[in-house]
C-alpha cells in the first residue's frame, strides 16, 4: 500500500516525453544551467555507459573525452534540469555496463552502430534460410532426375 502512495506522489514528476535511450547510445544531453537570474543550456555529448535504478530515481551516466581526458557525468533521467536528450547514434552494446570503454584508447573507443549489428543479424538469418533451402533442394533435384 505504501508503495502505491509513493508511486502516486512520483507519478506527476515523471517525464512522459523522454526518448527511449539505451546503453551504448551516443546522446546530446541538454542541461539547464542556472547562473543567478540567467538560465542557459549546455550540451554534453557522449556515450551512455550505464543506467541505474528505475522510475523517478533512474539515472544514466554519459562518458565523453574532453582534452584527452575521460569525463563522466551522471544525470537523473527525470530531473527538470535535463531539458532534452537527443539520440545521435545507436551503439551496439552487448553489456549492461560499458566500463570496458574506460580502458579503450583511440578508435577502439567507438561502438559498432546498432544498425550494422542488426544488418549482420538479418544477414545471418538470410544465410540460414538459404542454407535450409539448399538442403531441401537436392531432394527436389533427385526427384526431378528420377522423372
Amino acid at each position: 500500500m505504501s508503495q502505491d502512495i509513493i508511486a502516486a506522489v512520483q507519478a506527476s514528476q515523471l517525464k512522459t516525453d523522454r526518448p527511449e535511450v539505451n546503453i551504448g547510445d551516443t546522446v546530446d544531453v541538454h542541461v539547464r544551467i542556472i547562473e543567478g537570474e540567467k538560465e542557459r543550456i549546455q550540451v554534453f555529448t557522449g556515450v551512455i555507459i550505464k543506467m541505474q535504478n528505475g522510475g523517478l530515481e533512474q539515472t544514466f551516466t554519459v562518458r565523453r573525452i574532453v582534452a584527452n581526458e575521460g569525463v563522466e557525468r551522471t544525470f537523473p533521467m527525470h530531473s527538470p534540469r535535463v531539458a532534452k536528450i537527443d539520440i545521435v547514434r545507436h551503439g551496439d552494446a552487448r553489456r549492461a555496463k560499458l566500463y570496458y570503454l574506460r580502458d579503450r584508447v583511440g578508435k577502439k573507443r567507438r561502438l559498432r552502430d546498432r544498425r550494422r549489428g542488426l544488418d549482420a543479424l538479418t544477414m545471418r538469418k538470410e544465410e540460414a534460410a538459404t542454407k535450409q533451402a539448399q538442403d531441401a533442394a537436392p531432394a527436389e533435384a533427385a526427384e526431378a532426375s528420377a522423372e
Binding site: S2, I5, Q13, L56, H78, P80, R81
Partner: peptide, 21 residues
C-alpha cells in the same frame, strides 16, 4: 510515515522528501 522519495522543485533542485499519510 509512508516512506521517502525525491521531489524536483520549481528550480529543478532535487529535494529529499518524506511522505506522511
Amino acid at each position: 510515515k509512508v516512506g521517502m522519495t525525491r521531489y524536483y522543485d520549481a528550480e529543478g533542485k532535487n529535494v529529499p522528501v518524506t511522505v506522511i499519510q
